[in-house]
Design a protein around this nucleic acid. Structure first.
Lengths: 236, 236
DNA sequence: CGGTTCATTGAAACCAATCAACGGATGTGG
DNA sequence: CCACATCCGTTGATTGGTTTCAATGAACCG
């Protein structure tokens, strides 16, 4: 067990679960949360078919979730950054339906779900927040649906960049320059593209002067053009 | 206001919300539910940006949900059949994020969400069921993600047919022969394909002897082949 | 009964996948 | 510590599945 940070001391509390709980009730939440040891890059937090017992809030690092098809190929279903909650797809089946793997060294807070349900019975705002979180997950899946169903490869990549940027900003970090925690393979897989396509688009965005890319480090130079790329065809 | 069917008398109760509530508590749920007038084909149940006040259970007919992109084009995000619940994507924002439109004459039960939340505080199984419902929604979105990102047009259409079949079976209806409530346009839109592609695939499935199609009436003649089409390439 | 939506089919064009090859980074074990 | 394997990322050439464009008939509706 690592250091016993409480939610009170955690810098993520304004963007994480505590935002749904009154300060006076925060230690009730705090008491059910279990801070696990750090996961190394490539380690699994949970696997499909593991018994569902908890949801997880990312404290540091990044994870991806993925499912395996019957044929055994991987579908990356999401990326999770600090302050974000994952594992909520297992609730209905008592088993996780996806796998969660650390993209880099990561720490997570484990929130036993049955205890969370009990606590939610007493803290309406917590219940509401969890409904909200799941509702948000559904909504972003709908946006992804649109992306995969209607948008071309350029739009998809641009959209991912914008999303990562927004999520950095949410934590008070730079929305201009940041490091992508995932590989090109993961990006391609998530967006339903071939790796080569993603690579080519990064290169092209850079040639257009919209982006600076160096491996996984990216710097957004022309946000408007990128946004335009993933909505209107008009840019500049 | 139409006839005052109570959940007790509703034939859908084994597949709808009541399945989460003990018989003794059923009228507590029943009392907060509002049975609306029938919607005509093409009528909206709610629109994006409408204030979010309730979720809805389909009692008869069918609806689709869709979002409009910035450019104004439509993305169908789901189809809803009797016993299924829609509208849960508005929880986090106090506004609906999608539009819901009747595909044919439909009736729905309106469940005011704030009352549902209060009731969930007292009926743990109801709270759990709602978490489950949303969790299921997330899971099926993940499957759709895989479908759109990895599968070809044939697999997508086959998958939709299998899904519709399963949902009919769940209500105790024939899983072999049924009527699709939605147009080819809606199918194509939902699956990220062109209408022409969907049409061609229906024709091809029929030529293969896997399916009988006559307008919106379909009969599944060779389920294994269709399933094979949307997972293993092996068919027979 | 004209107008609109819906469905089907054919031909051509195009976007992204696939195949192929390469350099660099990473990591491991002798 | 270096040799070797593996993973990661990039670029080029070719292929192919789907879209797009075009045209037609059927069904539906006011």
């Amino acid at each position: 067990m690592s250091q016993h940070v409480s939610c009170n001391d955690c810098s993520l509390s304004p963007v994480c679960l505590p935002l749904a709980v009154a300060p006076t009730q925060l230690d009730e939440l705090d008491r059910i949360i279990h801070r696990g040891r750090p996961l190394k890059r490539g380690e699994h937090l949970f696997r499909a078919a593991d018994e569902f017992q908890a949801v997880y809030a990312v404290r540091s690092g990044a994870l991806k979730t993925y499912v395996l098809s019957d044929e055994g190929d991987e579908q990356v279903t999401g990326f999770y950054l600090p302050g974000e909650v994952l594992g909520m797809d297992g609730i209905s089946t008592a088993h996780h339906m996806s796998n969660a793997k650390a993209l880099e060294t990561a720490t997570v807070c484990e929130i036993p779900f049955s205890k969370l349900e009990m606590l939610s019975q007493r803290i309406p705002s917590l219940q509401h927040h969890f409904f909200s979180l799941m509702s948000n997950e559904i909504r972003s899946d709908r946006e992804l649906h649109m992306l995969l169903s209607k948008k071309n490869a350029d739009d998809r990549v641009a959209s991912l960049l914008i999303s990562m940027s927004a999520r950095h900003q949410r934590r008070g970090l730079s929305e201009r320059a940041f490091r992508l925690p995932m590989s090109r393979y993961d990006i391609a897989n998530y967006l339903g593209l071939a790796v080569e396509t993603v690579s080519r688009i990064f290169t092209r965005f850079q040639q257009n002067g919209w982006l600076r890319v160096e491996g996984r480090e990216v710097e957004i130079l022309n946000r408007r053009s990128l946004c335009g790329e993933q909505s209107l065809e008009v840019s500049l």
